[in-house]
Amino acid sequence: MLDFGLIQAHTLYLAQDATATAEASGGIDFYSFVNQLLNGIGIVGVLLLTGLGLAITFGVMRIINLAHGEFIMLGAYVTFLMQSAFQMDLLLTIPFAFLGTALVGAVTELTVIRRLYGRPLETLLATWGLSIVIQGVVKLIFSAQLKYVKSPPYISGNLLLMTRQDGTPLISISYYRLFIIAIALLMLGITLYLLYKTPLGRQVRAVAQNRDMAKCLGVNTSLIDLLTFAYGCGLAGIAGAVISSLKSVSPPMGQDYLVDAWMVVVTGGVDKLIGVLAGSFLIGESNAAIAYVLNDPVARVIVLAAVIVLIRYRPEGLFTVQKRA
C-alpha cells in the first residue's frame, strides 16, 4: 500500500562495471586484478566528482546537504535535455549542467538554507525534504521513465596498456573512466585555485572560519554564502552531467550517490579540500579490491562498516591535522 517512491533501484552501482571485466578474464590472476584496480580509478573519479561539491557545502560552509544527490540528478537531466533538444555533445553540456544546478542551488540557499544557519539537524531535515521535493518535481516533468544519455563517440573504447601476443587486451582501461577522472581532477584543481588563490576564495575561507569577524571586516557574508552554496551545487551538476551516460538517468538516481559522497567526505576529512581526493581514492580502490576477492555488495557493506568505524575513532577524517579540543 505504501509506495516508497524513493527506494533505490540498485544501490550497488559502485563496482558493478568493474567486476564484470574481472570475471570475463576468468579467475584470480595478476592481470585481471590490475584491471580491476584500474577500473577502480573510474570509481575514484565518480566519487571525487560527487564528493567535491559536498566538500564545499559541508567542508567549507558546514551545511549538511542531503539534497546533494538531487543536484547530481539535476545535472544529469540538464545534459539529457540539452542532448535531446539540441543533439549537443556531452562535453558541451557540462557548462549548462553547472549553471542550471548552481541556479537551483542559489534559489535553495535563499529560500531554505539561509533560514537555518547554525541549526545543523534542522538543515539536514530541510534538505532531506527538499530532496524529496526535487525528485517529485522532476518525476512530474520527465516521468519516472529511465532516460539515456549518449557518451561522445571519441571517448568510447579502451586504452590498451598491455596486450597478449594474439592481440587480445590484457590490461586496459576505458577512455570513459580516464575522462571521468580527468574531469574530476580538473574540477578539483579549479576549486583549489578559486579557494586559495583568489580574493573571493579568501573571503569564503574567512567566512568559514569566523563569520562574525568577517562581517566586521566588511565581507558581504550573505553573498558569499549564496555564491559558495551555488558553486557546490554546480559541482554536483557537473558530476551529474559526466556520469549521466554511465547508467540511465532517473529521478531517484541521486540517492545512489548521496551516501557514498558523504562517506568520501567523512573519510577524507573536510579540513583540507585535498582530503576528498584521498577519501575517494581510498574508498574507490578498496571497494574495487574487496569486490574482486569477494563480491560487490559485500565489498560495499565492508567499506561502509569501515567508514563507520573510522568516524567513531576519527570524526574529523583521516587526513586532517589533530586540533586541540
Binding site: D3, F4, G5, L6, V112, R115, L116, E122, L125, A126, W128, G129, L130, S131, I132, V133, Q135, G136, V137, K139, L140
Partner: peptide, 15 residues
C-alpha cells in the same frame, strides 16, 4: 505524487 506532497510538508514543517 504522494511523496512530493510529503516532501513539501516536511519542508514547511521544518521552516
Amino acid at each position: 505524487d504522494w511523496q512530493l506532497i510529503v516532501g513539501i510538508l516536511l519542508l514547511v514543517v521544518v521552516l
